[in-house]
Structure formats: structure tokens, C-alpha cells
């Protein structure tokens, strides 16, 4: 991910959209100065200064100063919906690669239906793709579950990997962006919060949906994103 000069244009666009100021900052940079300001995500206060602890877009909304990350690996949190690839199988479950700092484990017990220990690989084999939910994050590992609606192995289609920080953009407000793509390409799409995206449909539809998603990631900080995607999808079928 290369931050381009567009990031600064994003500032202007975001002012219009969210009525608050955003600017790209580097670690250690003073974002705001004054007794009134409070440090939010990825910032700290030293004296009267609020300082960035991370590279990203600083946002001052009211008194709170926070940083919205634009890069970095997926940081797992309880309740996150994720998509991963089965790395290994043992007698009690599946090791799953969901990206990010920790390896994750899906215990056999966390399957919604009974699976015989001898048939673990039949349910999900090495290399298979699974949609799961994060049950908990503990020191050194992430525990997953399938006990929730719509979770389980994903068959057919294709898996693409995007910058996890761009996931909110790909989904859009209340799913507006992803629904736009689904409707126009006649595909099923599941976006994992870890940046793994599963797309299934006719081959042409999948290809177009994949291109649209890449376009959102590339242009995520430019203004008029929705119009651009509409135009792209409305173009040649």
C-alpha cells in the first residue's frame, strides 16, 4: 500500500463528509495542542500536546483526537468475522491462517454440528477456506467459532486479499458499497474483517467484482468513490 498525495485530498473530502478535520500524521507528531483535547485511539497526551503513536489519518472530533490507521496487519478482536485458510489439522480441530500477528485455531467443539474425529478433513481440508468468528484473543493465539449464522467452509468462488484497513470502505455505509457490487455483478461476496474477501458467481461476474474491489482499495482516499464504482460497474458488462 503506497500512500499517495491523494491522502491529503482525503482530508478535504472527509471534512465535507464527516464534518471533522483529518490529516496524515507520522509517529511522534503533535496533532493538537491545548488543555481541552483528549487523546483517543493511537494517541497520547504529554503536557498539553496530543501526539500520534502511529502513522495514519488523525481526526479531531470535538475534543477527542484519534488516528484512523491506513496500513498495518489485521488486529484480531473478539466478535470479528474473518475468513481464513486451513493450514493444518489435528485431532481437535483446524489451524487457520487469518493473517495478522497470531495463528488461529478452530476447535472441533466450535462446529455447529457433530463431526466425527475421523472426518475432520472431510468438513474442511488443508487449503480450504472457512468463514468464522473470533471467539477470543489470548496471548499467542486466536480462537475461532462457527457457532453463528452464515459461518462455515466456503466452496467455489475465489479468495482475494486486501489491506484490512480498507475493509470499511469496501463494505460502505450500511453495506451500500458491497451491495452495489453484488447487485451489479450477480455475485455473492463475504468480506472478512481481516481483509480476506470471498467472491462467488459466474466467472465474468467474479472478475468484475474483484476489479471493483481493487479499485475501491486503490481509490479509497479519493473523493467521489461511489460514483466511480457505479461508473465502473455500469460500464461494459
Amino acid at each position: 500500500m503506497t500512500p499517495k498525495t491523494e491522502e491529503t485530498e482525503d482530508t478535504e473530502m472527509e471534512i465535507k463528509e464527516t464534518k471533522c478535520e483529518r490529516k496524515l500524521v507520522i509517529p511522534g507528531e503533535t496533532i493538537a495542542s491545548g488543555e481541552d483535547y483528549l487523546p483517543g485511539d493511537f494517541t497520547r497526551k504529554e503536557g498539553s500536546e496530543v501526539i500520534a503513536n502511529r502513522y495514519g489519518l488523525a481526526e479531531i472530533s470535538g475534543r477527542v483526537v484519534k488516528i484512523i490507521p491506513i496500513s498495518g496487519v489485521f488486529e484480531p478482536r473478539r466478535g470479528n468475522n474473518v475468513i481464513g485458510r486451513v493450514e493444518d489439522i489435528n485431532f481437535s480441530g483446524w489451524m487457520i491462517d487469518i493473517g495478522g500477528p497470531y495463528s488461529s485455531f478452530l476447535p472441533l467443539m466450535e462446529c455447529p454440528r457433530f463431526i466425527n474425529r475421523n472426518n475432520i478433513a472431510e468438513f474442511a481440508n488443508i487449503g480450504d477456506v472457512i468463514h468464522a468468528k473470533i471467539l477470543g484473543v489470548k496471548k499467542g493465539g486466536v480462537d475461532l467459532t462457527l457457532k453463528s449464522r452464515g459461518l462455515g467452509p466456503l466452496e467455489n468462488g475465489r479468495l482475494i486479499k486486501i489491506n484490512p484497513n480498507k475493509v470499511p470502505r469496501v463494505i460502505g455505509k450500511e453495506g451500500s458499497m458491497i451491495n452495489l457490487i453484488k447487485d451489479n455483478t450477480k455475485t455473492e461476496i463475504t468480506v472478512g474483517q481481516n481483509g480476506f474477501v470471498w467472491v462467488k458467481g459466474e466467472l465474468d461476474g467474479e472478475e468484475k467484482a474483484e476489479k471493483a474491489i481493487s479499485l475501491i482499495v486503490e481509490e479509497s482516499s479519493n473523493s467521489g468513490l461511489t460514483e466511480k464504482i457505479e461508473k465502473f460497474l455500469g460500464g461494459k458488462k
Binding site: G28, Y55, G72
Partner: peptide, 11 residues
């Protein structure tokens, strides 16, 4: 490191 979104006190 900064570009990778690593949490750092300063540069």
C-alpha cells in the same frame, strides 16, 4: 516501520 502501521512513540 511507520509505513507498516507499527505503533511507535516517535520516529
Amino acid at each position: 516501520l511507520a509505513h507498516a502501521g507499527i505503533v511507535m512513540k516517535e520516529m
